[in-house]
């Protein structure tokens, strides 16, 4: 599956370095048996508000979108970024479509396994909106990083 990576607000095609994947369930069951694992695969029915796991041990965390309409992994991505403070790559796998990429990026996802978009169309999708109303888990410096209400306040203060 082609891989796109989002870096400083721009998508580019990436060549996949081989990963050793382990599922969260297997990892919690027996971490020693998977000591060499580099990527953690989290099923989208795992409740990350209760599961405790040292996610920082992995360079990539893979979240699953079995159908584009199944939006559980958006919450997982935000929890990983905002609650766990995870700074590695969060990769979307499954039914990853061009028109979902904007939402995924806003939730902190920065790796995309997709055949439905190339870097050009993904960049286009990301630039469709200049602002966002709400704080999410955008990467720092993204145009949507600062919510509209904050921009309004800074504009008032500047004036």
């Amino acid at each position: 599956m082609p891989l796109l990576k989002l870096n400083h607000g721009t998508f580019s095609p990436a060549v996949e370095e081989p990963l050793e994947e382990v599922s969260l369930a297997d990892w919690l069951d027996n971490p020693q048996a998977h000591a060499g694992a580099t990527a953690l695969v989290i099923a989208n029915d795992e409740d990350l508000s209760v599961v405790r796991c040292d996610v920082h041990a992995f360079s990539v965390i893979i979240l699953e979108f079995p159908r584009f309409g199944d939006g559980r992994a958006y919450t997982q991505a935000r929890l990983l970024r905002e609650r766990f403070g995870y700074e590695g790559e969060i990769r979307a796998r499954g039914d990853v479509l061009r028109d979902q990429i904007f939402f995924m990026a806003r939730c902190g996802i920065d790796g995309f396994e997709t055949a439905h978009a190339d870097a050009a169309s993904a960049n286009e999708a990301l630039q469709e909106f200049s602002f966002a109303y709400q704080r999410a888990a955008d990467s720092r410096g993204a145009v949507t990083d600062e919510p509209i209400w904050r921009r309004r306040l800074s504009r008032v203060k500047a004036a």
Partner: peptide
């Protein structure tokens, strides 16, 4: 209205 508009986490409930 503003908070919920294009909410990235809650667009695929």
């Amino acid at each position: 209205r503003q908070w919920s508009t294009f909410h990235p986490e809650f667009s695929f409930l």
